[in-house]
Simulated scan of single mutants.
Amino acid sequence: MKNSIFAFLALLFSSFAIAQSVSEKDVPNIVKSTFLLSYPDQANVKWEKEKGNYEANFTIGKTQHAMLLDSSGNILETEEEISVKKLPAKALAYIQKNYKNKKITEAAKITDAHGKVTFEAQVTSIDLIFDKQGTYIKSIAD
């Protein structure tokens, strides 16, 4: 029983170490400034710290967005929630074949600092990553 409780607590605390909410006052000014240059009208931003980087989560209209920045204010990637229908056809076919009877719960378009586009589809508790053409790249467990 003690081992079960210890394992649960270790898992709980390790999940907080992955992404942790931070107050806007704890986000470096250079990070906030870079974000505001891209999205000057965003006032309701939720910040998280993940592996030394800062993620700004915000909504434009009804669409969820995120921007990942390093502590020097460099944009590492942006993410935009998309409709499942906007995933590349090849990605949808891969999911249908390999995850039969599983529902895609979220989909996103990710653009890195160099303009490289990838797509993410969340199926059960796994994020599936695909390139721009829909070719499977990797899985990331949530």
Rank of each mutant, 00 (worst) to 15 (best):
A7N: 15
T135N: 14
T59I: 11
T78Y: 00
I30W: 01
D142N: 15
E50S: 13
K116L: 12
S38N: 09
P40V: 05
K109Q: 09
S83D: 14
T63L: 04
V123P: 01
N29V: 06
T118E: 13
N3T: 14
K116M: 10
E120Q: 09
F16E: 15
T111A: 01
T34A: 11
D112W: 08
A7T: 15
V117L: 05
F16M: 14
P28C: 05
T63A: 04
V123L: 14
I140Q: 15
F130V: 02
L69G: 02
E24I: 09
I110V: 13
E81I: 00
S83F: 07
D70S: 05
S38C: 07
N3Y: 12
P40A: 08
S139M: 07
K97P: 00
T124D: 15
F13Q: 13
I60E: 09
M1E: 13
K85V: 08
Q42P: 01
S125D: 15
Y94A: 01
L76K: 12
S23T: 13
T111C: 03
D41K: 11
A56P: 07
S23P: 11
K103S: 13
K62A: 10
D70N: 14
N74H: 15
D26T: 00
V117Y: 04
I82T: 02
S23W: 13
L9R: 02
L92G: 01
Q96R: 08
I75E: 04
A107R: 02
K86R: 05
D41R: 07
E80V: 05
P88A: 09
L37S: 07
Y99V: 06
Y54C: 02
Q133M: 08
E120V: 03
Y136A: 07
T118S: 14
G73W: 01
T124S: 15
K62L: 10
A113T: 03
F16K: 14
S71M: 06
H65S: 05
E81H: 00
N29I: 06
F58M: 05
T105L: 12
N98R: 03
E48Q: 13
K109D: 05
S125N: 15
L36V: 05
G61V: 09
N98G: 00
